[in-house]
């Protein structure tokens, strides 16, 4: 039982980082209808940036904030290239994000090398109900909770947030009332970059990242996002937690190498199940 709880807690913590990546996918997809293949890159960039900032003598806190800001900037850059040009079809945008993801490897290796990078986060263990929990886990959960709270405030209670939702609900009508849908798409990419960066900042102390860690991060995040049909952040959060705990249990009780297989199989299963409920013709109109 203790072992189970231990696995579950670590699963919840990793699940939270999946949730942040997943929300990045969702925020971008909702507004721009582009699945951003470079989503995992933001996490890698931010994680590596923190370690650089720390080694240059920047204290914890500012280092993390700066790294998230850097990831947001990366998100904006990806957005400008992927959707900034008028009339870029979504499929082309998708391939562009893929190209940017691959191209970013070159930049990351140039700056940080091709070896895994890590830094120490919150050290120490907390005793909770018979199990010991790393403080970093608690930090991850707390930051994720606060982030989701802020996101829901933003989307449900601010004018700008509602304009973003409007772009996703009916882009034509959004343009009619004067909302610049492309600009909102860029805003979404920036927000998605920040969310990915936040995930990277939180996850790097738990597991070192290297330039190509983005695939694994993106796969997990995308699998979680698929729970909500790529549209609902709340469902993505639930999906991410389920996925995180399931992976931790599989890795703990069976084999660590099966861990990533969980996300893949869950993702494929969910996509197929969702596809079964919609006809291709209806998809096209959507």
């Amino acid at each position: 039982m203790t072992l189970f709880l231990q696995y579950a807690v670590s699963g919840i913590a990793t699940g939270c980082t999946f949730a942040l990546v997943a929300t990045g996918f969702v925020v971008i997809y909702r507004v721009s209808r582009v699945v951003n293949f470079a989503q995992g890159v933001f996490a890698v960039v931010a994680g590596m940036a923190v370690s650089s900032f720390l080694s240059r003598g920047l204290p914890h806190g500012p280092a993390e904030v700066l790294a998230v800001a850097l990831a947001a900037l990366a998100g904006l850059v990806v957005g400008v290239i992927a959707i900034g040009r008028r009339g870029t079809p979504p499929l082309a945008s998708l391939i562009i994000t893929l190209g940017l993801g691959i191209g970013s490897y070159a930049v990351i290796i140039l700056i940080w090398g091709d070896q895994p990078v890590s830094f120490t986060g919150l050290a120490g263990l907390a005793r909770m109900g018979g199990i010991s929990v790393q403080y970093q886990f608690l930090l991850v959960v707390a930051v994720t909770a606060v982030t989701f709270g802020l996101l829901s405030l933003f989307f449900d209670h601010t004018y700008l947030g509602k304009a973003l939702t409007a772009c996703s609900s009916n882009p034509y009508a959004a343009r009619l009332v004067g909302i610049d849908v492309r600009r909102m798409g860029l805003l979404a990419f920036t927000l998605g970059g920040a969310l990915g960066g936040l995930a990277g900042v939180l996850i790097t102390p738990l597991q070192p990242v290297s330039f190509d860690s983005d695939v694994g991060i993106a796969i997990n995040g995308f699998a979680a996002a698929i729970f909500g049909g790529l549209l609902r952040p709340g469902t993505a959060l639930v999906g991410a937690l389920v996925l995180g705990v399931a992976e931790a249990l599989v890795a703990g009780y069976y084999r660590a190498s099966f861990e990533s297989g969980v996300a893949l199989v869950v993702m494929l299963g969910l996509m197929v199940w969702q596809a079964g409920r919609r006809s291709p013709a209806a998809e096209e109109g959507a």
Partner: peptide, 18 residues
């Protein structure tokens, strides 16, 4: 062409974007 998933008030308020 309303924002179907949003409230009446939100629809109206978004009309005032400009």
């Amino acid at each position: 062409q309303l924002f179907a998933g949003m409230t009446v008030e939100d629809n109206l308020r978004l009309g005032a974007w400009r």
